[in-house]
Every structure is written in C-alpha cells, then in structure tokens.
Design a protein around this nucleic acid. Sequence first.
DNA 1: GCCGTTTTCGGCCCGACTGTTTTCAGTCG
Length: 577
Amino acid sequence: MDLTNRDVAKLLRNVAAALTLKKASIFQIRAYETAADAIEHLTSEVKDLWEEGKLAEVPGVGKNLSEHLNELFSTGKVAHFESLTKDLPPVFFEALDIPGVGPKTAQRILSLKVQNLEELKQRLEDGSLIKEGFSEKLAENILLGLKDTNSEKDRMLLPFAEELAAKILDYLRKSPDVKQADCLGSLRRKVATIGDLDFAVASDNPEKAIKYFVKMPGISRIVDQGENKAMVMLTSHLQIDLLVGKPKNYGNLLQHFTGSKHHNISLRKLAEDKGYSISEYGVKKLKTAVIECKTEEEVYSLLDMQTPPSEIREDAGEIEAALKHQLPQLIPYGSLKGDLHLHSSYPIEPSHDLGRDSMEDMVKRALALGYKYLGFSDHSPATSNHSKPKIIDILKKRSAFIDKLKLKYAGKIEILAGLEADIQPDGSISVPDEGLKLLDYCIVGVHSAHRMEQSKMTARILKALSNPYVQILAHPTGRLLNQRPSFEADWAKVFEFCAKKGKILEINSFPDRLDLRDDLVRQAISKGVKLVIDSDAHGLEQMDQLDYGVAVARRGWATSADIINTYGFKDLLDVLK
DNA sequence: GCCGTTTTCGGCCCGACTGTTTTCAGTCG
C-alpha cells in the first residue's frame, strides 16, 4: 500500500485530535497539526523523501516524528499512535473530515452514540439530535458540511487550478470596487497540486467587494462572510477563499497569505527579534503605530531583507538567504529559447503514443512561440516490432525527412532530430548505437518496470546514461501526480554521475509529471547538474505549457545558467555534444 | 513535539468568523 501525503497528514491530524481530547499540551497538538499541514502541501511524496533519507528536511518534522514516520513506512503502523487512538471509534475520525467539525464537536457526536456518518446525517435530519442538545444552527452547518465532505478528493493539478483561478480573477476584476486581484497560497507559490483556491482583492470598499464576490456564478453556498473575508463552496465542492484589504496595505495582505505556514511562522519570529509584529494589516513596531505597506517589498525591506519570490516561500532557507541579500536570480518565466521533447505524428511503429500534429505544424508553433530552436523526440521504434536493420532504416528515413524541414526553415529556426528511447530493465537502450549515431541527440526514459529495488534502478539508469550517444534523462523519477509515486533510485548518486559526465536531467512540464521534482531540482543544481525544461507535448496546444516547468525550476532555486534551453543555439549544441 | 548567531531548556505567529457561553471557545487559514 502506498501512503499518500494526504493519508499521512490525516493520520497526524487524527493523533492531534486524540491528543486534544486527552488535554495534551497545546504546543504538542500544534506540532502535529503543523507537521500534517506541511506534509499535505509538499510537492514531493513524503514517502519518497523517507526512502531518500530526507524526512528531516520537512519543516515541522523532528526527531520524534521522523521515528514515528519511519515506523509507519516500514511496518504500516505506529504503535504510539495506535495506543493514543485505540479508545476512539472510527466515527470520531470520520467526523473530523466534515468542514467546521473539530475534536470537540466530534467528541459531542461520539457522546450521542452515533455509529457512523450515515446515522449522523439521519439523526440530524429527523431532529433527534437537536432534542439531545445540538443547536439548530450547528445541525444545519454539519449537514451542509457533510455534503462537501469527500476525503478521497485528489488535489487539483496546477494547470487546472490556474485555469479556474483565471476565470475567478476575471470575474473579480470586473467589479468597480476591485482595484487589484491576485492569487494567494499554494497557487501563487506554484505548487504542483492545489487544494483550495485563495484570492486577494484590494478595494476601498471591502464590504461591496465581498458582496460582489459571493454572487459569483457557480457558488453552492457561502460558508463564511465577514467584513474582510469570505469563504464559499462551489457546486463542484471546491472551496474558494477571498481576502479583502485596502490598497494602502495590500502588500501586507499578499505577504501574509502567500508563504507556506512555516515561512510565515519563521518570518514572524524573525520580526519579533527585530522589534516588529507582522500581520495582514501591517507591520507594527512594538507599542507604536502600524506601518501599512502597499507592496510586499516594503514588508520585507522593513526586516532588512530581500523579497523572496513567491515560489520559494517555503521556509527552506529563503529567509536566511534573503537576510544576507544572497537570493538567487531565479530563471524568469518565458525565457526558454526552445523545446527538445516533442512528439510529432511522424509514423513510427508501434503508433500508440504518437503525437497528434505534424512536424511542420509544430515548427510553425515553435516559431509563433518565439523559439530559436526545437527538437523532435518521437518514441523509438520498438525492438519487439522491428529487426535491428529495420530500426536503422526507419531512423535514416526520418532523419532525411527532418533534414528537408531544416533546409526549409533555415535562418528562421534551428531544428534537431532527436529521439526518446526506452531504458530497458537491464539498462540497455531500445535503439542500437548505429541508430543513435544518426541523431542530433537522444533522450532516454524509464517507461516500463517502474517497481524495482533501489540499487537495481540506480544501476539501470546509470548504465543507460553511460551510453556516449545519450544526453538527456527524461522525467527522471517517473512519478505521475495523484497516480504513481516516484520510483526508487539513489538520486544523489545519479546527480553526481550527471555532474561528472555532463548528462542533462529533464524537468518535464507535463502537468501530471512536473518531474524532476522541485526538491530534487534544488539538490541537483547544488551538485552542478544542468537541466533542460521540456514540454513532452503530444499536440500543438501542449507546447504552451513550458512555464509550468519553469515554475518547478524556480521552486528548486534554479537560475538561467542551470537550464540549458535558456542558452543560445551554439551554446546548447556545445552542451549536447 | 519542534527548534536554536545570546538558548539543548523554555519558549512556541496572528487573526477572522461563528455561535451564543455577554467575555469566550471552537474552528479555520
């Protein structure tokens, strides 16, 4: 069984709830809750981090929780957690999933001898619980919350969330009472998956702005509505939060709701040391007036630090670096000069994973996107379908075809003939060297036998990368968001090898992949590994998704120098040589 | 339970909104 971040977070929240009933220290309870929060919002799977020995890098996970999680991943359970929760029936923990129900309310539900959520619903509807002391308002809220409860619901992929967010921002900006509107939270940090959508609005009339917001089409109910904020549920059971501030302190609002929980906690501790107190309304010099900030930059400069880009506000060293004025110059969006991982409709058997569009149409799209170069990396012909000479023949014909395109577009855009070959279970490449010789470059990737012992997978990848005709490792960890975890490999060893031999790792911008993961990007570039950001497009419209890969690179602290497709064509060829 | 340019002990971010307990607890972000 693979334990997801959601599973682990839920387990830790259950323990926190059990500790609440046992009247444990509020700080111990909070420690479990903040660790759960950090884990739920990780871009990588916590189980992957455990396998890679990197649990301690998760903010809020210390010695004890590391040991508990080690036991969890090794044996499937934690004796200490079970002893804490063994007296509590399942309905207690199920009730905690209802929005608005915390440990105390769940305990009340328990005390009324409710066996399960279905019974809870029935007894709230027929009024029998109201007779036993539930207020009507509470009953109504729990019933509404039950409708929104779906603990199995996956977090949204980033592009889906951004598309929805763009529509909501569009709606908000149409109001005369909205001076400015922005995304907040994980959406603004460009985390690979998103839970709720949060928005900020600057307005001179917050009340009117909120009234306008809660009238947005698609809202099924208003959960909260106050003077400065509102929380609504969409008919799709998605939660949207709106925070409204005045233009004069909009920077405080943006700053407050963008960083991860741990970024904010660390920043406020730092502020306290400097005699300041930070909130969404302003920065207060102790016992004096509040300093309101129009921009976030003013907030951070009050603390004598640089403003960390939103993508790295995770309390992973950015505060320290900003204090020393040593933040890296992150690779800008829109700065890529080409795409090297493109699948065209050029017919290669087997045809199950061909692209939908012709090479020439993709060249035209690349020109429209302003690229200086592009490379085709169709899947290699399968050895099971073709003899070796036949494969060579197919690749020769394809190269000749691409050569004609190169001629036709000479002076306008550079075109490269690449290939995406398979790394077979024994580490050999699906195309013989005589075939690879015909190419301008070769991308390799693991497309089968994903479950393999760590040492074997590491050896498999290193063997493939040892081939002198191979330059790039595609989607290195093989993860599929919400579907499949990263496979096990000794990444430190892979990075060391790549740095030494000049092999390139890909950041695959495909929304389901976003692989190499941001935490591994950071580790790789610290070792001197160069990366390439590719779209892996199988159709024209997917060619536009490269900025999701740029977001991953930024979250991994990458600069333009780390990413080879920010280079001009000649420098790119030097790296690929 | 976490965490550390004065600390391995002794602190621990800041605030909104709801309901109803007229001064606060519970929940949430």
